[in-house]
Write a protein that binds this DNA or RNA. Structure first.
Lengths: 193, 193
DNA sequence: GCTTTATTAGTTAGTATTAACTAACTTTGT
DNA sequence: ACAAAGTTAGTTAATACTAACTAATAAAGC
């Protein structure tokens, strides 16, 4: 396994702290308190704080990747895959808002080169997955072909991200799933052949 | 005037610091060093650091607003306005990347309620401007009407923001203006009636 | 089977460093 | 003369991390 049980405890607690008040809330002190042991104990499980953050990113990258690949394996058309992905993501985010902070943490790590690169690589990977889905959709005839897959992926991911950002900034005061439906009905019109 | 000359110096220096290494690089120590005076001198011009950050946000909000309204006043069609706006923004960002960090600073202030609200209000305002431009475009017949202005604004702003984010995470290693052109040619197809 | 030896996972009590900010004093410009 | 703008030299609080130690459990040797 990638992580021990105790490491998973720590990742979970860290997720909660970040979800509550952002990355600045993730201090060794708060994290130890959240788990219920001493600060020093953290260092029995991770070399340092950066490794903790890095592990959080890895953990959720894998988690989301697994579900996405499940959806992609389905034998539906490209456009239906996009619909299912948007549905899954918005549902996941609204049921566990803490994840948003992590999945959208790009700006938080600007001072650390390694973390910043890790975040970039995750974003690139996601973009490639979407591009492949779109390409298949263009081939199966469900998605328009007069716009390149790269641009469609940007449009898809960008509008999705902005919607989630607005939700977060509004303190989650609208129904994200509903907004996701509305967004999708617009995107479907844009994507369809 | 909204700010004294010295306050403008401080805003400029702060912008530079944030642009270089993100918001975590904006410390009173670094800021004072950048300007070339002591830390304590900062407090002759601003009550505290939060007021400095808040002023930076205000400053660039106004700056961008002014140019945007200039573009909107033009008697061109809605779709042409969008094209000019995207051209202006991408040009502005690539010639002064530091501004990106500030304009896209949403995630950085999650721990501070007041700043977080200010950022949200700026985003809302921008969205409204885009919605108005799109609405006019729908009325003048240059923009499709089967998708609501709110969704088109989300698509427009979202894809624009994601492109800029990718550029930043890649350490500006592609031509943003060129990428902006490519994005626009895709968006134009999507928006046009 | 039972003692010795390691390991794991925790503790307490610190460290050095850095952050934002302030009080008291000095210089400068009009 | 005096207000504005600067300085020096600090304060307080927080941060990531470490040293030294311990109880409990597991492994090894005879």
């Amino acid at each position: 396994m990638k992580f021990t049980n105790r490491q998973l405890d720590i990742i979970q607690a860290a997720t909660k702290l970040i979800g509550e008040k952002g990355i600045q809330n993730l201090t060794t002190k708060n994290l130890a308190a959240e788990i219920g042991f001493s600060e020093a104990a953290l260092y029995r499980h991770f070399k340092n704080k950066n490794v903790i953050i890095s592990s959080i990113l890895e953990y959720y990258k894998d988690e989301i990747k697994d579900v996405m690949f499940g959806i992609i394996q389905d034998s539906t058309t490209g456009i239906l895959k996009l619909e299912k992905i948007i549905e899954f993501l918005f549902n996941r985010f609204s049921s566990n808002p803490a994840i948003i902070m992590i999945v959208f943490a790009e700006t938080s790590f600007q001072n650390d080169i390694q973390l910043s690169e890790q975040v970039h690589s995750i974003l690139k990977q996601k973009k490639m997955v979407f591009e492949q889905v779109i390409l298949k959709g263009q081939n199966d005839g469900s998605i328009r072909m007069d716009i390149q897959k790269e641009q469609l992926a940007t449009i898809f991911m960008g509008s999705l991200r902005l919607t989630v950002l607005r939700w977060r900034l509004s303190n989650m005061n609208f129904d994200l799933n509903k907004e996701g439906d509305i967004l999708w009905s617009a995107l479907a019109k844009v994507f369809i052949k």
